[in-house]
Design a protein around this nucleic acid. Structure first.
Length: 276
DNA sequence: CCCTGCCTGCTG
DNA sequence: CAGCAGGCAGGG
């Protein structure tokens, strides 16, 4: 479900609730969601450890532990992370519970079970999460027009496929790729090799702008986050094309079109985003 | 390069 | 009931 913006929001809400807290025990109801090491070794490493800080990279969320272990979590499509009191009602599809010393719990819930957890020790090379091959963060200064055109400018793939490629830029998913391309006035199906330098420069500006805009719109209190169980994002009313197929374009009132690009539903304005 | 599978639940 | 869902790895 979540892209960079949502994962950052989750981190922002959870970090103050988790920082400094000790994990006293782990409950694993679905061992297969723990991808590395096995569930037993994972539990051994986290038990009795304090969470020192949280980080985000692309769509991955990480918790650093006092013993220098790192826990990484990827929520994929339907993963949720909630910090709740012990008494909070049990939810279906709760696969892992981190029991905290303060009586709260960190719960990993995931209907479709695509989400994964990993753990590695300091010095151990992370060869399993896929994080090593992530491209630059959208808000990093290394994301320049030159970088984009040099990395993707010769590709025959569609520009939307490129934006979804986590090795080019980390953290963009199906929603924000559509929003970015709409803001840039670029048709999602255009082959990357057909973009001119000026268009790459425009993308390099609009990618961080779009991320920053939706990050700001998505700010939520811990109370409201728990009320909506982390499933409702406050920025969705601000989406201009995603989910709006058949409705008028906010710029020119032409009817927004839906198509499928690399297996993903894609919405664009046929008038503002010309194919040629 | 696209395509499928991985899962479950919701919508039309 | 089919079709689809804000992700990704693995296959041809």
């Amino acid at each position: 479900m979540p892209e960079l913006v949502e994962v950052e929001t989750i981190k922002h809400v959870l970090e103050p609730q988790l920082r400094g807290e000790k994990i006293v025990k782990l409950s694993v109801f679905r061992p297969e969601v723990i991808a590395h090491p096995d569930a037993e070794a994972f539990e051994k490493c986290v038990s009795g450890e304090r969470i020192t800080k949280m980080r985000r990279r692309g769509k991955y969320l990480m918790m650093e532990l006092e013993n220098q272990c790192t826990v990484a979590i990827h929520l994929r499509m339907t993963g949720q992370l909630l910090v709740t009191p012990v008494s909070y009602p049990a939810r279906k599809h709760t696969h892992v519970i981190f029991h905290l010393e303060n009586g709260q719990e960190l719960r990993f819930i995931d209907t479709r079970r695509f989400g994964k957890l990993w753990l590695w020790r300091q010095g151990e090379r992370d060869t399993f999460t896929g994080m090593a091959s992530l491209g630059p963060e959208p808000l990093d200064t290394s994301l320049t027009g030159a970088y984009l055109s040099e990395s993707a400018g010769n590709s025959r793939r569609s520009v939307k496929t490129c934006l979804l490629d986590q090795t080019l830029v980390a953290g963009i998913g199906n929603i924000y790729s559509d929003e970015i391309l709409f803001a840039a006035g670029i048709h999602p199906q255009r082959p990357a090799e057909s973009l001119c330098q000026e268009e790459w420069e425009r993308l390099a500006e609009i990618i961080p702008q779009t991320m920053a805009y939706f990050l700001e719109k998505n700010v939520i209190s811990p109370e409201d986050y728990l009320l909506t169980e982390g499933k409702e994002y406050r920025n969705t009313p601000y989406l201009r094309v995603y989910g709006h197929q058949g409705e008028p374009c906010p710029n020119c009132a032409a009817t927004l079109q839906r198509t499928v690009i690399c297996g993903r539903s894609s919405v664009y304005c046929p008038c503002c985003q010309k194919e040629h």
